[in-house]
């Protein structure tokens, strides 16, 4: 992984659904597939558990990028959760873009339990994108800085 900027290491929060994407991350680990340490995973039962408030909260506390991973459409453990997540995130991302927040800072990806490779490459790519964007300045809360 080549850093565009050697100084800047972005903070990335990844919400992963327990059944597919978290298992996909486990598989990436089992297969020793490297991806940047900037990514920190939070386990949620389903992508539909991700509240837009969590994403804004992450940005508020200093995250530079937030990625949500869930089962592929049609494969949701709870049948329909990722369909709702897809609509919610599409609208939220569109709104952030509308407000001029860099749209590349948010992403939704479908990663199955078998896609360890996809998980690792998605995370690498996302970190690269966010690193290039630099520090999150348009959606930060200065009060949360020490």
């Amino acid at each position: 992984m080549q850093m565009v900027n050697n100084e800047f290491k972005p903070k990335i929060v990844a919400f992963c659904c327990n059944w597919c994407s978290y298992a996909g991350a486990d598989l990436a680990g089992t297969n020793r597939l490297q991806y940047p340490a900037e990514v920190k995973i939070i386990r949620v039962p389903c992508s539909c558990r991700v509240n837009p408030m969590f994403i804004l909260r992450a940005f508020q506390r200093g995250a530079d990028g937030v990625i949500i991973c869930g089962c592929h459409p049609g494969d949701c453990h709870y049948t329909t959760g990722n369909y709702y997540a897809r609509r919610r995130m599409t609208l939220l991302f569109s709104m952030l873009d509308f407000l001029g927040i860099e749209k590349e800072r948010t992403r939704l990806e479908w990663v199955s339990a078998a896609e360890g490779q996809k998980f690792a490459s998605t995370m690498s790519d996302f970190v690269k994108t966010v690193t290039e964007l630099g520090k999150n300045k348009r959606l930060e809360d200065l009060r949360c800085k020490k």
């Binding site: 039962p45 558990r49 509240n51 453990h77 709870y78 959760g81």
Partner: peptide
């Protein structure tokens, strides 16, 4: 079953 769709 605890998916959490309702919470959002």
């Amino acid at each position: 079953q605890g998916c959490g769709a309702c919470t959002v």
